[in-house]
Write a protein that binds this DNA or RNA. Structure first.
Lengths: 205, 205
DNA sequence: TAGGCCATGTAATGTGTTACATGATTAG
DNA sequence: CTAATCATGTAACACATTACATGGCCTA
């Protein structure tokens, strides 16, 4: 149900489906994304439910633009969602699942390569977030408590990304260090045959 | 595609759909979850694709159990997934989206209540993760680099949860402090009318 | 005897991705 | 002339949730 609400949120300014797709690419991509093929039907549905109204406008280039605006109904629904308390969904981390099962590969060097690739990905992401933060601070100063209402909330969301991704990079480093200690203390494990488990102990749950 | 692989991972030991559901509740719930109504059709599909084989067994209580076991095909597919590099999907945070748009409510006290509720939720979760960590350390010692292969990987996954959720709690505290500074420096904003924007500045992107 | 656990599934609906299909305008 | 951007959408498929449907055994 969340794409509905995110579109309602973005549509506090009138926009077309195409505009909204671009809004995702710009500021919102760090916590949500959606394809045009999902956005168009969703907008249509929201209009049927009277949350949105649309009008066709000629476009300087390309076909006519269908510009959506929020109705009072839509604004009310947005407020209901915002006031309903934090929507803590079941977060899913496919790469954690991979790591969890990766002992099946039987070669800790593969785990090491996996963690290195993950660290690389995460640290690029973190660098992007830092760049955005620097731009914001350059434009609006380093005291977010004095930003506009929207600015304050958007900066807070950005800060969560920085905390969260940063902590994952730190976790990668911790795990890589543990892998290296493991390699140092049991060097044979690294080259053990893949399919035979090299231990019979019970594993921590 | 990931539930498929997670079931393959869990099925290194033969199990029924019901067993797998319980496995989710026990150790895997921190990074994935699934309902029985999703698990049963997925197992059936995996069997059609020759990744799994099943046999019926009488059960001491209740109806016959359909026990699934991994085929060579299935084991290969699991390895392909594990060796394919980290599956970094688009992570979605509905509560971040809420925060991002929450200036629409026009009352920073509501943002404060929101962040307090979120902090509460996250710190409970963190406490659970710490409890699991304490149990593991009590059972297997505090040197994870000497755990079994499975234990080492599972502990690493647990550590990511601790880093990640912990950093979010820290972010909640940072944000709550910023809210309080904001309330102290512009006390009127807290009681401003909800629907009128109290500023016309551009907001940080 | 009531409620929980064991154990199976189906149906309906909702959410999201990938591929397909079209066509004008503009910048290099 | 070619590729990107603007701008619309549909169709097929994949993934996930909620509700429905059944029924025996065990414990309080």
């Amino acid at each position: 149900m969340s794409l509905d609400h995110i579109l309602l949120g973005l549509l506090r300014e009138p926009a077309t489906g195409y505009d909204l797709k671009n809004a995702f690419s710009e500021n919102v991509r760090h916590f949500w994304s959606a394809e045009l093929s999902q956005i168009y039907p969703t907008l249509k549905r929201l209009e049927q439910r009277r949350m949105l109204r649309s009008r066709l406008e000629p476009s300087p280039k390309g076909p006519n633009r269908r510009v959506y605006t929020l109705t009072d109904e839509g604004r009310k629904e947005l407020m209901r969602w915002l006031r309903g308390g934090p929507a803590v969904g079941t977060e899913r981390f496919a790469y954690l699942a991979q790591l969890y099962f990766m002992d099946a590969v039987g070669d800790i060097d593969e785990t090491r390569a996996f963690m290195t690739a993950l660290r690389d990905h995460l640290s690029r992401w973190l660098a992007q977030l830092w760049a955005v933060e620097r731009e914001v601070i350059a434009a609006y100063g380093d005291a977010p408590e004095r930003y506009s209402g929207a600015g304050f909330h958007q900066f807070a969301a950005l800060r969560m990304g920085i905390h969260s991704v940063g902590s994952k990079v730190a976790w990668c480093d911790e795990t890589l260090a543990a892998i290296d200690r493991r390699l140092a203390s049991m060097p044979h494990a690294a080259t053990a045959a893949g399919t035979e488990p090299d231990d019979r102990e019970e594993s921590p749950s």
